[in-house]
């Protein structure tokens, strides 16, 4: 497997993290996302016409979109079925719902991070406010899960929904978004960083 990767991308980190949890070997192809904007180059657009990272190549199959890659890896490489439980229709739908939610976190928290860190020109006030709206929902959901004795987004064990929501929630501080407002999120981040084979990226404090 070959992962087109950028070291500071939370979306690429979703894949690196899941690969680590599944203990999979893969080849990383570094892309100069910043400052080189290599993801918008002709050669990269030939791989992904959307000009976005990450992209996974596996035996001739080319998949773009972090959530789609998580789904692919879970189906293809997780014989336990733990990471994408499919027996229970409601839980199956929950996972899909939170995968979509993860994309909204990218649209807000990751945008704030690109603004503060890499100088992207965008509405930072709207990006941060949008992220806070989502984190309130996530904090409330995780609290409810805890009331029911569950520690993860979609049920009693971690799924790809947790992995999809994790990076840009844990990296929110990079974009000037305080996550100490959300204790249930803090506990969830802490639990996730304590899973066996957890793999970190800069900007996430594994000790907090």
């Amino acid at each position: 497997m070959k992962l087109y990767d950028y070291v500071l991308s939370g979306n690429c980190y979703k894949i690196r993290l899941f690969m680590a949890f599944l203990d999979l070997d893969y080849e990383k192809v570094g892309v100069d996302f910043y400052p080189g904007r290599e993801h918008k180059s002709d050669s990269f657009l030939a791989i992904n016409p959307l000009g976005q990272l990450p992209v996974l190549e596996d035996n001739g199959v080319v998949i773009r979109d972090a959530q789609a890659i998580l789904v692919y890896l879970a189906n293809r490489h997780d014989p336990s079925g733990q990471w994408w439980p499919q027996a229970d229709h409601a839980q199956f739908a929950q996972v899909v719902q939170w995968l979509a939610f993860a994309d909204s976190i990218t649209g807000t928290s990751s945008a704030a991070r690109l603004h503060d860190m890499l100088g992207y020109d965008l509405d930072i006030v709207a990006a941060r406010a949008g992220a806070h709206r989502l984190f309130r929902i996530l904090d409330s959901h995780l609290s409810q899960q805890e009331f029911e004795g569950h520690h993860w987004i979609a049920g009693p064990s971690p799924t790809i929904a947790d992995i999809a929501c994790f990076p840009y929630t844990a990296l929110a501080g990079d974009g000037g978004i305080d996550t100490f407002y959300y204790p249930a999120i803090q506990r969830w981040i802490h639990r996730l960083t304590r899973l066996p084979r957890y793999h970190n990226m800069p900007g996430i404090n594994v000790f907090a």
């Binding site: 100490f180 204790p183 803090q186 506990r187 802490h190 000790f207 907090a208």
Partner: peptide
Amino acid sequence: AGLQNAAETGTSVRAV
């Protein structure tokens, strides 16, 4: 300054 479970055993958290 927080609920007891905000600071779980072995962790450090921020309060303002």
